[in-house]
Write a protein that binds this DNA or RNA. Structure first.
Lengths: 342, 342
DNA sequence: TTGTAGGCGTTATCAA
DNA sequence: TTGATAACGCCTACAA
C-alpha cells in the first residue's frame, strides 16, 4: 500500500488532455480556456495532487531554498537572526535550511559544500571562530553564482554582501556612557580577536578613552572568552594583580555576568565601586539581581535585512548584475542599574 | 559570465567515456577499473564538479531534507530541540528546514503543504496553540508516506510517533517538592489547556495534592498565559481576592518570573512567605535575583531522540512496515532558592 | 568493464 | 486553445 502522490500525468490521463494542458491550467496560464482550467484544478484537488517542487527546481534551476550556517542555533542571538531571515523570506516562497558549524572551520566547509550540492539559491553565514583562512569561501564565488551573505561575523571578501551592526560604535557608546557616569579606570573584556566584531568593539573602546583624555592601558584590556567562567577568572586575575578597575565593559554578556557574580562574592558593590556593562542584551540581563546594562544587536532586524539583501541580489542576478552591499545597523544601548552611579 | 557548474555529461565528453561510467566512478561502483575511477575523480575535481542533489532526489525519491515546524524559533526551548535534531540527522546527510507557525493553524497548514511539495523525507512538529482541529494532519497520513513526528506539543493521532516529556510527572514532582517544603496552599498557573502539555502539568499538580491529603481548590487554579505580564496580573488578582497562596507552581517560567517581580514589589518574601517554581528551566532562571526553581524539559535530548525516531522510521518504511513510537522523557527538577524554605 | 537508453515530474518551445 | 516533445542532471537496468 504505497501512497504515491498523483502527478500531472495521472491527471492528464484521467481527463484525456495532454500534460502540457494540465501544467498550464495549474499554473494559471493565460491562453487556456476557463472550462478546462476549472476542470483540471478540480480534479487535481480530488486526486490530492501535490506539485513536485523537485522536478520544478531541476527544470528552473531555482530550489527556493536558502541555507544558513551559524556556530550554534540555540543562542538567543543566532536563533533571533534566523527568525528574521525566515520571516522575511517565507512570504516569498523560500524555505530556510539551517546548519551548525560548532565553531569548526572544517564542519563549516562541509556544510558549505552540501548546501551547494543541494542547489540552494543563497547562503547566509556567520563564520566560526576558527575560520581564519577564507579560501574555501572565495572559491565558491569563483565557481558558482550562489550569492553568499555574511551577517554579524563577517570576513572581508570582495563580492560578498554583509549585514552587521556597528560594533565599533557599540564599543564606543558603552565606554563613553561609563565615562559620563564618572568612571575613569575602565577595563575591557575582549572577545576572540580573530573575529572582526570583537576587534571593532575593542577599537571603539580605545577611541572613546582617547577622545576623553583617558589613557589606554594594555593592562586594562583582558582577553577573555565569552563564558561565565571566563568572566569569573578575569575578575580573579585583576584583583590578584591589584590592578583594580572601577568599571568593566565586556564584549560578552556572559563574561559580564561572571564578573558580576565574582564581584558579589567579593562584596564589591555594583555600580558604586565597579560598574559593569555587557554586549548582546541577552534576555537574562534584565532579570538579573542587578539588571545589567548591555548593547543590543537587534538580531531579528539583522535577519530581516539580510533577507532583503538576498532578495535584491536575486533580482539583480536575474538582470545580470551582482552588487555587493554592506549594511551596517546601529547598535542600541540599554542602560540599567549595573552602570548607573549618578 | 554565467558560472554553470559542470555535470557528469561535461566530464564524460572531456574524457570520451559514457555518463554511466562517470556516474559509476563517482559513486564508487565496484565493477569499474581503478584507472578510470581515478581519472574521473581527478578531472571531476579539476572541473569543480558538484553533484546536483536535485536530480538525484528526483530519481531516488529521497531529498535528504526534513522539515521542522515550531511556533517560534527564537525561544530557548524550540531552538534547543532543533539543535538536537540537526546534530542527530546531519551526520546521516540530512538537512533541516525550519518553519515558524506563529501559533497560527493556518500558517501551520500552509507550511505543512509547502514542505510536502518540497518532498521532505519527514516532518517534525510542535503544534500551535490554535491547532484544535487536526484533520489537515490526519489527511497527510492518508495521502502520503511522509512520516510525521510530534515533539513536546503533540496531538493524539494514530500513526504518528511522538517524543515528549512526562509533563504529568513534572507537575507532580514540582508540587510534591513544594509540599515537602511545608507549603500547604499551593496555587497553579495553568497554561493554555488546549495543549496536552499544560493539561498534564495541571493533572500532575492535582494528583500530588490529593496524594498528600490536600484539597484541590478551583480558586487555586488560574489560567494564565505564558508571559511575564500574565504572571504579574495573576498575582494582582489573587491578592485582590484576598485568596493568598503560600506557594505557586507555574506552568511557565515567564509567568513565574512575572509573579516574582510582582511579589517583590509588594514586599512579599520569597520563599519565606510564598514559594515559586516554574517550568522549562529557561536560562534566566538561574541568574535571577533569587534563583528560581524550575522543571527542565531536556530539549536537546528531546531533539536527538526525535531524530532517532525518524531515522528508525525511515529504515522501517524501507522494510514496508511503519511503527508508531511514543517516547516519553523524564523531566528534571532543579530546586533553587525560590522554593526552599527549610 | 563500459555503453545505451529510459525515466524521475515539470516547464517551455514549437506545431497544430 | 491544445498537443507532442525535449530538456533539467542523475541513476540504473539491460546490453555489449
Amino acid at each position: 500500500m504505497n501512497k504515491k502522490s498523483a502527478t500531472i500525468y495521472d491527471i492528464s490521463k484521467k481527463l484525456n488532455v495532454s500534460v502540457a494542458t494540465v501544467s498550464r491550467a495549474l499554473n494559471n496560464h493565460p491562453r487556456i480556456s476557463q472550462a478546462t482550467k476549472d476542470l483540471v484544478v478540480k480534479t487535481a484537488k480530488e486526486m490530492n495532487y501535490k506539485q513536485n517542487n523537485l522536478a520544478k527546481a531541476l527544470k528552473s534551476g531555482e530550489t527556493k531554498n536558502v541555507g544558513i550556517i551559524v556556530p550554534y542555533i540555540n543562542t538567543n542571538f543566532f536563533s533571533s537572526v534566523i527568525r528574521g531571515i525566515e520571516e522575511e523570506l517565507s512570504p516569498h516562497g523560500y524555505h530556510v535550511i539551517i546548519c551548525q558549524s560548532h565553531e569548526d572551520i572544517n564542519i563549516e566547509k562541509r556544510h558549505l559544500n552540501t548546501l551547494l550540492n543541494a542547489q540552494v539559491d543563497g547562503i547566509f553565514m556567520s563564520v566560526s571562530k576558527t575560520t581564519i583562512d577564507t579560501e574555501h569561501i572565495r572559491n565558491i564565488l569563483d565557481t558558482s553564482n550562489t550569492p553568499i551573505i555574511f551577517f554579524d561575523r563577517k570576513k572581508d571578501i570582495s563580492g560578498i554582501s554583509t549585514v552587521t551592526i556597528d560594533d565599533y560604535r557599540g564599543g564606543y557608546m558603552a565606554t563613553e556612557h561609563l565615562i559620563k557616569e564618572g568612571y575613569k579606570n575602565i577595563c575591557h573584556f575582549a572577545g576572540d580577536l580573530n573575529l572582526e566584531i570583537y576587534q571593532n568593539r575593542l577599537n571603539g573602546y580605545k577611541q572613546a578613552l582617547i577622545d576623553n583624555d583617558l589613557t589606554v592601558k594594555s593592562d586594562n584590556i583582558i582577553s577573555t572568552g565569552s563564558s561565565i567562567d571566563a568572566g569569573i577568572e578575569a575578575i580573579k586575575k585583576l584583583w590578584e594583580k591589584k590592578s583594580v578597575p572601577d568599571a568593566i565593559f565586556s564584549s560578552s554578556d556572559f563574561a559580564a555576568l561572571g564578573a558580576c557574580q565574582e564581584l558579589k562574592k567579593r562584596k564589591i558593590k555594583i555600580p558604586q565601586e565597579v560598574a559593569v556593562i555587557g554586549f548582546s542584551n541577552e534576555p537574562f540581563t534584565q532579570f538579573m539581581e542587578l539588571p545589567m546594562s548591555s548593547v543590543d544587536q537587534t538580531p531579528v532586524t539583522m535577519g530581516k535585512i539580510a533577507g532583503q539583501v538576498f532578495l535584491e541580489s536575486v533580482k539583480e542576478n536575474g538582470a545580470g548584475v551582482s552588487i555587493e552591499k554592506k549594511v551596517v545597523l546601529a547598535p542600541q544601548i540599554y542602560i540599567r542599574k549595573s552602570s548607573k552611579r549618578k
